[in-house]
Design a protein around this nucleic acid. Structure first.
Lengths: 245, 245
DNA sequence: AATCGGCCTTGACGCAAATCAAGTCCCGCC
DNA sequence: GGCGGGACTTGATTTGCGTCAAGGCCGATT
């Protein structure tokens, strides 16, 4: 939470997959932008894409930095956040498998991105990607569709941050995170939460203590059970009510 | 602020401009999506665009409703908001001259839109617009660029709602609103605010009273002067400091 | 096994903003 | 001109969440 960040990861710090996988066998193949790629485009993609991995806490890029790459997450969780000069942090989202970073194609990153746990991703030089997008309108269409979804999500988050109380925020977080996870994994009622309480707090506009107390309260009311690195939902219906709308 | 809304405006309720203006003479011609239109495209546009006006408080469309039109605002202010079942409201933005509503091209509107004061706008059937966008990649590119800006803005707003105190919120609102206005009008230090305190409160995640008190405090400290339907900034530098980063 | 350091939880207390409650101003309307 | 109502301000009080502080748990390190 300090106001200084470690320096952004250098290329050498990233783990290259020993036998570079290719896009056609990628398990994120049908997710996100990649879903919009035809088989022949996939070949083009394979030429420019770099498959990489990074351990927990790696800073992948920083707000304001020149956006040399766009990313597609294939494993693990990445926190996206903004920092205020005095160290306050607002996490704007958690990126998971299938999520695309850099939808806007901006010259600079508008948030910081940091690995929550060990992550794998592929990255594409932004310039190459922009070229492809400019040549393939259907790729741009897909990208725009993703941007639209993110815009919609941001509005949900504004309602949450502006008008919901602590309990509603936590309940809504559990449900929305579960919904997102369900796109990419069979996740019944036990939600894996690799991120810390501090991350959840900074995502929900609360403090660690309030998040902890709220979860304890839900547990006391037998709506959830706290498990190592996750939370099991016991009463989805009631939690949905609490999340409210 | 009630939980029920008046029914959405019907076509008959909207004021048709007596002598329909055309896009080439429109004062929003160089703003927003329209800026991306070539002269010959403008002609196509003129055939499908409908110029309309509406008095204050007109509900233009509602969240969840089928999105029959996309809009470009040419005069006045529109509040965009979400409602919770119990009546709590979060205003996600104020649209002014040059702003485009419906960037995502979604099938349904994801927010409600209501005229704050008397407004003028042009609207285009979404289907026609989508057709144009599909034919003209550079239009889609422009649209995507706008979506990117909105995404960036949403992140600012998440930081504001999640991590800033009342004073910072109000100061940031005054400055960002001024910046937006400056794109379309010569607006020195007196910021016209057609929206009510209640609107500002619901935009900033505060109550009317807190907004009022905070503005009074800024006035007491001689940083602003409250004028009819607006606020004059006396010390932009100090206000920028308060807004903090 | 003992020590350390994160991370999390829990309790006591404080405070910023919400709520409750007048009151003022101003504009439209009779 | 007087009346009514909405928007705004201001004060008193409450409260939900933040802050401060202590302690527990657990994995890493020696």
């Amino acid at each position: 939470m300090g106001i200084t960040l470690r320096e952004t990861v250098k290329d050498g710090d990233l783990i290259c997959s020993p036998h570079t996988p290719n896009c056609s066998t990628c398990t994120s193949r049908h997710l996100s932008v990649c879903a919009a790629l035809g088989t022949e485009e996939l070949v083009t993609f394979d030429h420019v894409v770099q498959h990489r991995g990074a351990p927990a806490k790696t800073l992948l890029f920083e707000q304001g930095q020149k956006a040399d790459f766009v990313f597609s997450v294939s494993e693990g969780t990445i926190r996206l956040f903004r920092l205020l000069p005095d160290g306050r942090r607002q996490i704007t989202g958690f990126a998971i498998k299938g999520d695309f970073l850099g939808v806007a194609l901006d010259e600079t990153y508008d948030v910081c991105a940091e690995a929550v746990d060990a992550v794998r991703f592929c990255r594409i030089p932004r310039s190459s990607f922009v070229t492809m997008v400019d040549e393939k309108p259907h790729l741009l269409r897909k990208l725009h569709q993703i941007a639209g979804r993110e815009l919609h999500f941001s509005q949900d988050q504004m309602v949450l941050l502006g008008r919901r109380n602590a309990e509603e925020r936590v309940a809504a977080f559990l449900l929305s995170h579960r919904a997102r996870l369900s796109r990419v994994m069979t996740c019944s009622v036990t939600i894996p939460l690799p991120m810390s309480r501090s991350d959840i707090a900074d995502y929900l506009g609360l403090t660690i203590e309030t998040v902890s107390r709220t979860i304890s309260k839900l547990a006391r009311e037998k709506l959830v059970v706290v498990v190592p690195d996750g939370i099991r939902l016991l009463d989805v219906a009631r939690i949905t009510e609490l999340a409210g709308g």
